[in-house]
Design a protein around this nucleic acid. Structure first.
Length: 957
RNA sequence: AGGCGCGUAGCUCAGUGGGAGAGCGCUACCUUGACACGGUAGAGGUCGGCGGUUCGAAACCGCCCGCGCCUACCA
């Protein structure tokens, strides 16, 4: 075998390796599902395996990859790679969302910059421009996902406005319309005056803001000297008032009900009415009723049969129903003028500071207007009831009670309550948007009769007389296509081969802020159109925040760009987001960045990013991240790289030598059995954690295994055997370490796919060549296609216990060395008195390795401690070091005092329990026994320590 | 206002009834042959407070304090 030994680089060159490896996976078709969309076999080995499907939450085509995407897609990739390796037919469906308002805004700005008014350009041409934009930039975010290593089946990439998905949208709309679940109505909607469109409740961000409350006098019609004082925050809407309401139980005002008041500034006569809506506690207790501009007032108006008066245009300028001087004014200009005139007329009684929640458009950020308009709605009640039933709830006494098992499980489970609460209090969903980019509502109005036709395609009658009909101008809310996503991407409404095989899917991973926007609605759609829920489990990940716990956002400039991690950034690039956001502490932030990263930030690679994200996940509300944490993640990748490299180099050296070919490797010894037992435990734990969506716990397990068990102990202990002259011993160590490393790479692959694939490429051939696999030879050339490891044996606690003696022994020597400042390069001889049956055999068997780890010349076994020797006491052994030669007496006495102190504390605790009759009587026998053992052990060691201490103190005199 | 969650080492967080843990940071020492993106040893904690349940509470229950998130209302 003529393998030449190669250099092993100190660091994983991810810049070079990641693109190369990703291309290799694509070439190999490693991400493709076992069957193509028509049902043809792609991978015969898995063609009949159980499918495991995830559909990606489609990122907006306008989106740039942010940390939330990075986290969510890493989670999905971990799951899909795990299941793929574990024998499932794994399918991860990718795609993008057309993001109606967001995309139209981006292109509108582009047109603005070119001096083109999109309204003049017209609907068709503008939509054409948006399509062009999406062809050019719409897939950017998908290529960023590729950089992260996401293993989507790219041949199945979908777009919410592609032909199939558009058909699905029309189908869903028509079916709902025919079922009476879609209706058109005049309602108060959230209205964005900048984008001039309705917004759903979820698209409105509410925050407390400081404002004013105005008390305005409304004089009575029959006696202008008398008046009611009305409190309002929106004086400019008074032109739309149709009544003044007081609470029917409010003694102060009851007598005025039925009289009329004169509307200030306009003179219109309106009635004083009694309505529960008026809160006596609030303001003056009199409230103006403006049905066209307030949802509550709209209801009051309906109750009292009052006709709404709309006072604004769609851009929130005042309409012609207001007095002349106000017409065409912006709502806030109008407010200013109205207040001035009210004041001049002596009608403005008071102005008070007032904190109130102001709703703003999530997109344009301007305060929304409540606007009365014709909109399309989905009736949510019946859909929510289906979802509640599917979650195992039944309606009883007006409330919902859990009776059965949920059809979809939310993780963490606390989201179940939130989900239920939302379902039980659901409101109808306004689905029409007054923009051009999106699925145009498939409804046609007759120009004369107003008759409405709704159909999947242009109806026969419309085609016959096109001039008599006009199609609805509005498009559908973006989420109207998103809620069909798990179904439509797989072919619905056709029952395609894909749909039959891969729907329903298994897992949905998402951020919590879109549970209602999206997850709940997907459940509705699944139940309504297919009768099944679209997935079995929903994993809701925590919110990513910066190190201070503040949500990362563009407007705060505190985000970490995933591409910074993968590609690195200069100081200037790091500062860029802050400069764009310009928060109040801009200067301080810029300085801080300069101080912490004077030379910019070195890229850490996709693996380190993925590792850090997975490792940081916790069950709490948020995950705090900083650039430093990713550096720690990179350190882990480097640690694995170097540990693996040492094993691979040893294997390659073995392959290069001629003299040992064919020598049978020695059978695994205690140390080997320990490593394999630890590996088995780690595999078991990882599988359990993955199945339970406990990614953070999995990360902890993997970290500990790689860093401590594999590198610090197994590898250190193997070094002497790697260089042994005994062929069998050497090959025995290589066999175990090589095989354990292979399993470790398999175990880590879902989280850090690139570095493991790279190491696999170097490990597998040399292991094959040497024929040193502990069990079967791996079948796959690429790790991505390998099997996820399974434990070799049941748990073996006794194996781990035996090895722990050796670990404690090594640590004991190191402690004694440290207190006495014995340099590492000074090798010493220690004496041991074995107390446990396994102590002597273990230490003899691993003599060479233990000497290497503890920097010893030799370990001598003795019956007794000789006078003057320092000692370390353990339940399994006593360790002696010749004091005269090495030890600093005073430091050693101080150390003994500390040990004595610790043991005394421990003994006190144990004694206190044992002296408590209640404990001995009522605690389980094993617990009492364990406590006795502990007390005995502490007592024995304490006696030994005290004796030694006394002797040393004598000497020190 | 209601709901949900959190409070454990300087920082970020594990720990669901029986001897307080990890990583980072800190201190001291170490260029030893995979790794200084490393190694060894160490310092550091009335587990937010009070009460209860229990033989035994960081954990379970109640109240309080502090923090975060969500929902609704706020003329």
């Amino acid at each position: 075998m003529a393998t030449t030994t190669r250099e092993f680089p100190k660091r994983f060159d991810f810049r070079e390796a990641e693109p190369r490896i990703y291309a290799r996976w694509i070439d190999a078709g490693a991400f493709r599902a076992a069957r193509d969309p028509e049902g043809g076999v792609v991978d015969p080995a898995r063609a009949d395996a159980r499918p495991f499907t995830i559909v990606i939450p489609p990122p907006n085509i306008t989106g740039r990859l942010h940390m939330g995407h990075a986290l969510n897609n890493t989670i999905q990739d971990v799951l899909i790679r795990y299941k793929r390796m574990d024998g499932h037919d794994a399918l991860w469906v990718p795609g993008t969302d057309h993001a109606g308002i967001a995309t139209q805004t981006v292109v509108k700005k582009q047109l603005d910059a070119e001096g083109i008014d999109y309204r003049q350009l017209g609907r068709e041409a503008t939509v054409e421009r948006i399509w062009q934009w999406r062809e050019q930039f719409g897939d950017q975010i998908l290529s960023q996902l590729k950089k992260m290593g996401c293993s989507c089946d790219w041949d199945r990439t979908r777009f919410t406005m592609d032909e199939g998905l558009s058909r699905a949208v029309r189908e869903a709309f028509v079916r709902l319309y025919e079922a009476g679940l879609v209706y058109r109505g005049k309602r108060i909607v959230n209205w964005c005056p900048v984008d001039r469109t309705a917004l759903s409740d979820d698209e409105v961000e509410k925050d407390d803001e400081r404002g004013k409350m105005y008390d305005i006098r409304y004089p009575f019609e029959d006696d202008p000297r008398e008046y009611l004082v009305v409190s309002t925050t929106r004086p400019e809407t008074l032109f739309g008032d149709v009544a003044v309401a007081v609470n029917p139980d409010d003694e102060r005002y009851r007598k005025y009900v039925g009289r009329n008041v004169r509307l200030p500034l306009q003179g219109r006569i309106i009635p004083v009415i009694a309505d529960e809506h008026a809160d006596p506690e609030l303001g003056t207790g009199c409230v103006k009723i403006t049905p066209a501009h307030d949802p509550n007032d709209f209801e009051v108006g309906e109750r009292h049969g009052l006709e709404p008066v709309d006072v604004m245009h769609e851009d929130a300028t005042m309409s012609d129903v207001v007095p002349e001087q106000y017409r065409g004014l912006d709502r806030y200009a109008c407010r200013k003028l109205a207040l001035r005139e009210l004041e001049e007329q002596g009608l403005l009684e008071a102005v008070r500071d007032h904190t109130m929640a102001i709703g703003r458009s999530y997109r344009s950020k301007v305060p929304i207007e409540f606007r009365l308009s014709d909109q399309w709605f989905v009736r949510m009640g019946p859909l929510a009831e289906q979802a509640l039933s599917a979650s195992g709830y039944v309606k009883r006494d007006g409330g919902w009670v859990r009776e059965g098992e949920p059809g979809v499980r939310l993780h963490p489970s606390r989201f179940e309550k939130i989900y239920l609460h939302w379902l039980a209090n659901i409101r109808d969903w306004c689905i029409s948007r007054q923009i051009w980019w999106g699925h145009r509502i498939p409804a046609w109005y007759h120009r004369e009769t107003g008759e409405i036709l709704v159909d999947r395609d242009v109806p026969e009658r419309v085609r016959a007389e096109p001039e008599r009909w006009i199609q609805e101008q509005d498009v559908l809310d973006t989420w109207f296509s998103s809620w069909l996503w798990p179904m439509s991407t797989l072919g619905w409404p056709e029952r395609t081969a894909d749909y039959e095989r891969y729907y329903p899917t298994q897992v949905l991973s998402t951020a919590k802020d879109i549970i209602f926007f999206w997850v709940a609605r997907m459940n509705f759609a699944g139940l309504q159109f297919d009768g099944r829920l679209p997935y079995a489990d929903v994993y809701v990940h925590s919110t990513i925040t910066d190190e201070r716990g503040i949500t990362m956002s563009k407007s705060k400039g505190n985000g970490i760009d995933p591409l910074t991690l993968i590609e690195g950034a200069t100081v200037e690039q790091l500062q860029q987001p802050v400069l764009e956001a310009r928060p109040s502490n801009t200067k301080a932030l810029l300085k801080q960045i300069e101080k912490r990263f004077p030379d910019g930030f070195d890229a850490v690679g996709a693996d380190a990013m993925r590792w850090t994200l997975i490792y940081s996940i916790n069950e709490g509300e948020r995950v705090r991240l900083s650039l430093d944490r990713f550096t720690e993640g990179r350190n882990f990748v480097t640690k694995l790289w170097n540990g693996a490299g040492r094993v691979i180099q040893a294997l390659e050296q073995e392959a290069a030598r001629q003299d040992a070919a064919g020598v049978a490797p020695a059978e695994p010894g205690d140390k080997d059995r320990w490593l394999l037992a630890r590996l088995d435990s780690t595999i078991r734990d990882c599988r359990r954690h993955l199945d339970g969506f406990d990614f953070g716990a999995m990360g902890q397990q993997l970290y500990h295994f790689v860093w401590n068990d594999f590198c610090s102990w197994a590898l250190e202990l193997s070094k002497t055997r790697f260089t042994s002259d005994d062929h069998a011993v050497r090959r025995g160590a290589l066999r175990v370490m090589g095989s354990a490393l292979a399993d470790t790479l398999r175990l880590l692959h879902p989280v850090i796919p690139f570095v493991t694939e790279e190491l696999w490429a170097r490990l597998r051939p040399v292991m094959d060549g040497l024929g040193l696999w502990l069990d079967r030879q791996p079948a796959a050339e690429l790790l991505v296609r390998e099997a996820f490891p399974a434990p070799r044996r049941p748990a073996q606690p006794e194996v781990e216990e035996r090895f722990a003696i050796v670990q404690r022994f090594v640590v004991a020597v190191r402690q004694l060395r440290a207190t006495s400042n014995i340099k590492d390069n000074l090798k010493i001889t220690v004496q041991v008195k074995p107390l446990h049956d396994a102590a002597r055999p273990m230490l003899e068997q691993l003599h060479q390795a233990v000497c290497f780890l503890a920097r010893l010349d030799a370990v001598e076994f003795v019956e007794q401690r000789s006078p003057g020797m320092a000692a370390q006491y353990d339940d399994a052994f006593e360790l002696y070091i010749d004091l005269g030669k090495y030890l600093d007496l005073r430091e050693e006495i101080a150390r003994l005092d500390k040990e004595i102190g610790k043991l005394e504390g421990s003994l006190r605790q144990a004694r206190a329990k044992l002296d408590n009759p209640g404990f001995v009587e009522r605690a389980p026998a094993e617990t009492v026994e364990e406590m006795r053992r502990r007390a005995g052990s502490a007592e024995t060691q304490l006696a030994k320590l005290r004796a030694t201490r006394g002797e040393l103190a004598e000497l020190a005199r």
